[in-house]
Design a binder for these strands. Sequence first.
DNA 1: GAGCTGATTGACAGCGCTGGCAATTCCACT
DNA 2: AGTGGAATTGCCAGCGCTGTCAATCAGCTC
Lengths: 336, 336
Amino acid sequence: MVADRAGVSPKTVSRVINNERGVRAETHARVMAAIEQLDYHPNLAARGLAGARSFLIGLFYDKPGDYVSEFQTGAVQRCRESNLHLMVEPLEAGSPDLGRAVSTLIGQLRLEGVILLPPLSDLPVVHTTLATAGIPAVHIAPMHQPADAPSVDTDDRTAARQLTAELIRCGHRRIAFMLGRAGHRATEQRYLGFADAMQASGLSIDAQLVQTGNFEFTDGLECARRMLLSPQRPSAIFASNDDMAAAAVCVARQMQLALPDALSIVGFDDAPVATMIWPQLSTVRQPVRAMGRLAADLIIQHEPHRRGWPQPMPRPHLELELILRGSIASVRAHNA
Amino acid sequence: MVADRAGVSPKTVSRVINNERGVRAETHARVMAAIEQLDYHPNLAARGLAGARSFLIGLFYDKPGDYVSEFQTGAVQRCRESNLHLMVEPLEAGSPDLGRAVSTLIGQLRLEGVILLPPLSDLPVVHTTLATAGIPAVHIAPMHQPADAPSVDTDDRTAARQLTAELIRCGHRRIAFMLGRAGHRATEQRYLGFADAMQASGLSIDAQLVQTGNFEFTDGLECARRMLLSPQRPSAIFASNDDMAAAAVCVARQMQLALPDALSIVGFDDAPVATMIWPQLSTVRQPVRAMGRLAADLIIQHEPHRRGWPQPMPRPHLELELILRGSIASVRAHNA
DNA sequence: GAGCTGATTGACAGCGCTGGCAATTCCACT
DNA sequence: AGTGGAATTGCCAGCGCTGTCAATCAGCTC
């Protein structure tokens, strides 16, 4: 069809579409014109079948949420630049036949690569199944970086250190820390950053003031209560995410504490809730969309050559952005 | 491969996979066993190419967010039951070459159907492009229901009426209303429901107490301020979504109003923020995941026959769930 | 047991494109 | 003009399945 109109063979049209070299400029133009006029769109399935590829990248996630949506938007953007498409697949991290589910997906779709959002990025079944099938996978913020696959991370530790340092700079000495879910890289890194800053300033961490909140708002309520009821109340709370920080705000309010003067609260993620409460949360913004973009990029960079990953294994760390808002106040002399 | 092992022709394997009738039970079992043993997964691209279909449904959205992620999860669930896959595609509602983008997508992917999330569900370009290509589309909560395509809606009007009635039952008489963005079906329906309830109780709506907030938190702040500064302060505020309701909470707090006693506030959507502030918002929960499921279902029901949509055009309305939480208080005698 | 009908099954071509080559064209240089 | 080598282009087969239709088979009837 297009070939006829351009007066060339189908193969030449194929060459133009795939941007192969060795097509005379004049021919190229003629073909492009024909494509344009006929509003021709090559059939992905046929291209895939003939070329033994799929033009598909998978994005596997567990729980839906803001994060997923934002991440996938970034990933799709990058995919488009290379004429690929993103296949989103919710997967149950706890399911017993997760492995089977994954192998069905990759078997049917012949995905060219897969992006794993946490906590899937830490499940051995997923990793093994993918590796066995020879499908390149990029792990997002994994707890344990796989030796044979790249990962995309953010430097949570540094950001947590900086945010803690800011609290210290404002005169806070007793700072409570609310941990996220065990087994998440973020949980570990954010705590380490907090500890770094405390240690650097010669401050001790009161074990009573470190509570585990699993990243959930409701857990955060409980943690905050325990913290604020402790004999020596902290002057600041660092929550590992904004949901829990919001919980701390609620509890403080119920206890009639004047915010932020009587209690500074900071979170992490810059979730929507961070700016929907008063005082607005100081927090750390994650470049989620950029991470999606980068993850897709790693897959795409890898793809054309079909060799292993470049060495050293790419492990980009994206920078986080400190967002200081009204939830931090300086400690008055009598509190310090 | 599988055919050999089962001692049948490839065509019979195909029949089994596609669940076609006319395969003897014994043969069917033999093929299934072979499939199982070989861990065989049919190649989607090949199936698509040969069968002139794609096994792909598109989900087009504009802005990422919680809603999208939740919706798509429901849609994928339904797709899996029919061995289909969901292709998510962020599209810029404002872009001048939106039409071209859509036609490229459907041209390449040969989507079997498309689900349009608002505001895309109201853009004529999208609808026309899809219709021209003969691709079934389901419009989610469109402002104007297209005559030739089904839509999935929620009964916002009824829910808004019920929630307003609840406020009235608690003794509220002066109730302010915060409108969403103009041109959204939700904006209109929620207001109408509010007006229904007011009228049913013989209450008048003070024009000063109806403000437009565009569904944004920041706009909500401004609206709430105007409402609460008005000569006769309302005893309750109905915000068209939870983000704006959260804004009202913030403003009320800054004005030292005791919540919920001095001011009741209700929202809509049951967004995450609804339970992350104090008092927790009374609101209306949208069955987002169920909507995703249903939208996919409509496409899938339509597909096998390749005829037009059934008549009358399916326009399911899902029920919303009233969620009553702490943000509503009864009006004291002296306020009423 | 022949004959007939409907249920199963298989043979074959082809979906729309891309690899792997062979054929052709182009161009610089003798 | 003749020649060799590189640059273009086309031919052919086939990717892994399914649509079509013909072939075969099982179960009955007489």
